[in-house]
Design a protein around this nucleic acid. Sequence first.
DNA 1: TTAATTGCAAACATTTTGCAGGTTC
DNA 2: GAACCTGCAAAATGTTTGCAATTAA
Lengths: 135, 135
Amino acid sequence: MTRDEIAQRLERSGVLPTTQRLDVGEVILSSPQHASADQIIARIRASGSKVSKATVYNTLKLFCERGLLRTVHVDPTRQYYDPTIEPHHHFYNVDSGELTDMQIDAITLQVNTALPQGTEHAGVDVVIRVRDLRD
Amino acid sequence: MTRDEIAQRLERSGVLPTTQRLDVGEVILSSPQHASADQIIARIRASGSKVSKATVYNTLKLFCERGLLRTVHVDPTRQYYDPTIEPHHHFYNVDSGELTDMQIDAITLQVNTALPQGTEHAGVDVVIRVRDLRD
DNA sequence: TTAATTGCAAACATTTTGCAGGTTC
DNA sequence: GAACCTGCAAAATGTTTGCAATTAA
């Protein structure tokens, strides 16, 4: 995804496409992947651009609010950001911390129980934990 | 579960049942529930006992290592501790933050895809997100 | 020129760690 | 008395916020 295409996407979501927001978008919106805020900051800086931590956090929050990003909670110490907003599931490698997408239809899930009193369904997260094969 | 029974459980797991560890155990091991470290500290202090944060965190970590507790990651800002160590799943109320256990057989799950290269299965977490009914 | 955005530093919250003093076997 | 446990305070994250300077409409 080019910078221009990202700019258009931001505008369509009512987000002013500033330099820093395009920097963030280029890193995390361009391709299906997962990254923490720290990794995103590092990649932006590695590419020569300068951004502050605060701006990256603010931008990630904004992207989430506008539905451009989701967060994934598998690691107790940090959040991961995921540009794939369609419903899907994850593999989580507990050894490497690596997150991998799984298509929604890779999981057949049947729920044989009622939801808690006074609640309605809001989504399902399935995380299949895997570990490195050791022989 | 009485304090004595908790003491026995700790000993069976090779954990010396000190006063503070029994305090922690009484709060989080006595009944199926979920609590954050902060909530556990608050409950111990509300019952009149004194403990330091460090000791509670150390104790929770120890309990996890010894298989007496698990952590659940649904809230990006804190860990929840869960005394139910048998495999099971959770409802997570996104409005209230409330976590509810779901029996393992309440979910029928079929995986129609291969695990990532070089990995083996290590477990599955299913979280059904629910929200408060609004009429 | 008015509103929105950035970035620094400081604030925050959760969790971990170093270490002196206390407890337990 | 040797090993283990506790608790304080300080450090180490990850994330948010206040605010002055900057940029964009």
